[in-house]
């Protein structure tokens, strides 16, 4: 009872999603701090391979709900299972990936349980809170931190009165960390019939196309990223040229994506990808917190910007003041001259 729960997201090949493993890692350390157990919930079909994938992260209890109809995911059956399980188990904290699934499943569960839910957290920790209006003091609750409103501030949100305290987190924000390769938690195979009814399966999936990622931005050791300052889709080709030369990948800020310069799946930042490459070349990116939070852990950062006062320059190791159209060809030329 009152443990920390992680919703395990499954992919078509039966693999557990990276974000779920990252959340298990974070969940394990939070559970240690709270002196409670870490529990995981996997809902789908043919779940035999799940335990071996999640146990090394320190899962104390794995709940399995196996039914052919539960994969591919549809909202209502998964929400019904989580809701009933949470009513029975009364978790103090429940975390989901901020994925297409987590971002619609979390709200449905929270609406029924009347729990607070915070989207796209960038840090989670345990701490205390005093409600200034009621004077009540709460100990060991989940502090959910995220940049807020135009990136002007970082807000910390709490759910003092209601349980579970729920939050979603994007992939790549938390670090994956194995606990013990021999860790053996308990496995509970639930009878799905006690949790869902036939009428829950109202959404029919007629077609489903999964596209394989067109790039490996997450794993790239060099990222060339462009912002609104790039100016056009055509100008982004320069970034692709440089990335190709350096064997890197192209990323973008939210502003560049919104302007239509580059596809949404290349967005880096709070509501996009988090990357930690060896080299991050920020081209025409001003450096709003929502962007920098997704790249600030890069080993080396170069900023190319016409504005000497762009906020990104403050976190850059190298700052090149100039126009991207002029600088990038020089970089390509310089790199080629190294004969690599």
């Amino acid at each position: 009872m009152n443990n920390l729960f992680i919703y395990i997201e499954l992919q078509d090949n039966g693999r557990v999603a990276e974000v779920s493993l990252e959340l298990l890692s974070k969940g394990r350390s939070l559970a240690d701090e709270l002196d409670c157990q870490l529990e995981a919930v996997a809902i789908g079909t043919r779940l035999d391979g799940v335990a071996a994938q999640v146990m090394p992260y320190g899962v104390d209890v794995l709940h399995l709900f196996d039914d052919e109809r539960l994969y591919p995911y549809t909202t209502i059956p998964h929400a019904a299972i989580l809701t009933k399980l949470f009513e029975e188990e009364k978790p103090q904290i429940a975390l989901l990936g901020a994925t297409a699934i987590g971002r619609e499943l979390g709200p449905r569960v929270s609406a029924t349980l009347h729990g607070g839910l915070t989207a796209d957290c960038t840090a989670l920790s345990i701490g205390d809170y005093t409600d200034e209006q009621t004077g009540r003091h709460y100990e060991n609750i989940l502090l959910q931190t995220l940049p807020s409103f135009g990136g002007n501030v970082v807000a910390t949100i709490v759910n003092p009165e209601h349980r579970p305290q729920m939050a979603t987190v994007r992939e790549g924000v938390m670090r994956k960390e194995l606990r013990d390769t021999n860790y053996q938690g308990k496995i509970i195979r639930h009878d799905t019939k006690n949790y869902v009814t036939d009428t829950d399966f109202v959404i029919k999936i007629i077609e489903r196309h999964i596209e394989h990622a067109k790039h490996n931005l997450k794993g790239a050791s060099i990222v060339v990223a462009g912002g609104y300052g790039i100016g056009s889709r055509e100008n982004f080709n320069l970034l692709f040229d440089l990335a190709k030369e350096l064997h890197g990948e192209v990323g973008a800020s939210r502003a560049a994506v919104d302007a239509g310069f580059v596809d949404h799946d290349r967005m880096i930042g709070q509501t996009g990808l988090t990357v930690r490459p060896k080299l991050y070349i920020a081209c025409g990116i001003s450096g709003q917190i929502q962007h920098t939070i997704g790249m600030q852990d890069s080993a080396t950062i170069i900023s190319i910007n016409t504005d000497p006062n762009a906020p990104i320059n403050a976190i850059a190791d190298y700052v090149i003041i100039g126009r991207v159209e002029e600088v990038i060809p020089k970089m390509i030329k310089g790199y080629k001259s190294l004969g690599k």
Binding site: H114, G115, G116, L117, T118, Y129, D131, L143, P147, S148, G151, N152, V153, V154, A155, T156, I157, V158, N159, P160, E161, H162, I289, T292, Q296, I301, S303, P311, N313, A314, I315, A316, D317, Y318, V319
Partner: peptide
């Protein structure tokens, strides 16, 4: 159910850049 515990202005960590 949610409350704002705190709001902090962002003080970006700065590096010595060249």
């Amino acid at each position: 159910p949610t409350r704002i515990k705190s709001v902090e202005c962002i003080v970006p960590c700065t590096k010595e850049s060249r």
